[in-house]
Amino acid sequence: MKKYPFCLNLFKVCIVACLLLLGFSCKPKHRYLSDVKVKYYQMAKADSLPPADTTLERLIAGYRVKLDAEMNEVVGKTAKELLHFQPISPLGIWAAETIHRQTALYVGQKIDITCFGHNGLRIKSLPNGNVTRGKLFELMPFDNFLVVMDADSVAIQQLLNLAAFKGGWPVAGATYEVQNQKAQQIIIQGEPLQSGKIYKLATSDYVANGGDNAFFLKTVKRKELTKLMRDAFIEGVISTQKAGQLLDAEIDERVKIIKK
């Protein structure tokens, strides 16, 4: 008799436990997602943001010393801010002309056409005024080397078709029109693209090796230079500076959109 209440209690506990277990096992597999809210924080210099984290500042500072000495060196000066956009921009023209000129200098022969990807240039603009070595690293952060190719008219047509399809790529030594995402009216060194002719094409090893979907260039005969494209830009800027000139380019009609 004395044990009975205890047993009853135990029984009750078990029942409740079972119910609870049952309850838990029946609970929905996933929790109800009641709300999703979004917020975008603009990382502005606005006072609304807390001050920069000092631990991180210190960590960065250690790395910055070596970098700053080299990167803050002013290597040239622009006449105005050179913007980068498609189909062709002042920065694109300046960059293509610089590579065109410098490559000819490095290989000691005339380059017919220079062309590389719009996205190969990684800044939206070169600022008005002083240009530092660091800025040119930002313009061309990739360790891409210069390549001079012996490209026939078919390869040139394919390259400019790709340029047209991609919305317009910087070019020097040549002009082209974009119609229906293809290149037409291609003029190289003042002459229409001539079937069967071999052209000296300057570009980056990235494009030459099929980057940006330029697969058709992979088999084209080439001479790979040991010169980084970035160094070509830096040396081009320095030589302009030495000549007492400003870096500048005006937008022209070398890439003309007839119809997308």
Binding site: R31, L33, S34, D35, V36, K37, V38, K39, Y41, M43
Partner: peptide, 11 residues
């Protein structure tokens, strides 16, 4: 330039 934030509430 931006930090994205999504606040998700589970009931």
């Amino acid at each position: 330039l931006m930090l994205g934030r999504l606040d998700i509430y589970f009931e």
